[in-house]
Design a binder for these strands. Structure first.
Length: 235
DNA sequence: CCAGACGTTGTT
DNA sequence: GTCTGG
DNA sequence: CCAGACGTTGTT
DNA sequence: GTCTGG
């Protein structure tokens, strides 16, 4: 990963799943990309209730001089995350949920790239484990950014790609969001591949390769040509 | 992550 | 192929 | 000590 | 800001 995902559920369904008030500005998204404002769910010491807000995808460390570093920080490897200068403080104090209902991975073989979409089998919304950060731009404005944590693939994703985003079980949302909880070994224990038995996948069109395509066609399944159809073409 | 561009002048 | 921008 | 990095993915 | 490499 994890450079692309989808968030097509109605905001009321998302709000119910995550236990928040539905924000007005959430729209169905079929192709969410790095560099864009994306919805996150957070919980601060100042605001003990969970709430939704938008952040730019691509974490800019607070000490960074160049905000373009954000495009290289769209993911944070779970392995060694407690030692990464860019992420260790955020792991302790600035965790978030990044809601989605599917994510895309590209299977490469030869010079072909085939995009697949991965979802929960029951089509429920889910949450990536995320970190966020605050960065002050030269004009003095605070910019909030976020990153999706990755891990090793599970049985469902491994033949498509060698990494997958960390998906948190709903039972773990409270611990992940609790700003007072800073026991990193317990937090890192949550950063595991998701149960493949609970997930499904299907191939999608390469329209999703282009960030500008953000419409329902991106999530429409495409079937590989069945062998008999191939034969018919020449029969 | 993918898409799209991919230069020249002048030089401690 | 490699770098930058989104 | 200072300078420089601080990240991930994938390599047709 | 903090760590690593020289």
């Amino acid at each position: 990963m994890c450079g692309r995902y989808r968030l097509t559920r109605k905001k009321e369904i998302l709000a119910e799943h995550f236990g928040i008030e539905p924000p007005d500005n959430w729209q169905p998204r079929y192709n969410v990309a790095p560099g864009q404002e994306v919805p996150v769910i957070r919980q601060d010491a100042e605001q003990p209730r969970r709430y939704g807000s938008n952040m730019k995808w691509g974490l800019i460390p607070f000490w960074s001089k160049d905000p373009n570093i954000g495009f290289k920080m769209i993911n944070a490897r779970s392995e060694g995350i407690t030692e990464r200068a860019a992420f260790k403080e955020a792991l302790k104090k600035r965790r978030c949920l990044i809601p989605a209902d599917g994510f895309y991975e590209w299977q490469k073989s030869g010079n072909k790239k085939r995009p697949f979409c991965f979802t929960m089998s029951d089509e429920s919304p889910f949450a990536f484990a995320g970190l966020w950060e605050r960065w002050k731009n030269p004009e003095g404005q605070w910019i909030e950014t976020c990153s999706i944590i990755t891990t090793t693939p599970n049985k469902l994703t491994e033949d498509v790609h060698d990494r997958m985003p960390v998906i948190l079980h709903p039972d773990d949302y409270d611990l992940w969001l609790d700003p007072g909880f800073q026991k990193t070994e317990d937090l890192v224990a949550l950063l595991k591949p998701y149960d493949p038995e609970a997930m499904s996948r299907y191939e999608v069109s390469d329209r999703v390769n282009a960030v500008k395509n953000d419409d329902p066609e991106c999530v429409a399944p495409v079937q590989p040509e069945p062998p008999e159809a191939q034969a018919t073409l020449f029969g």
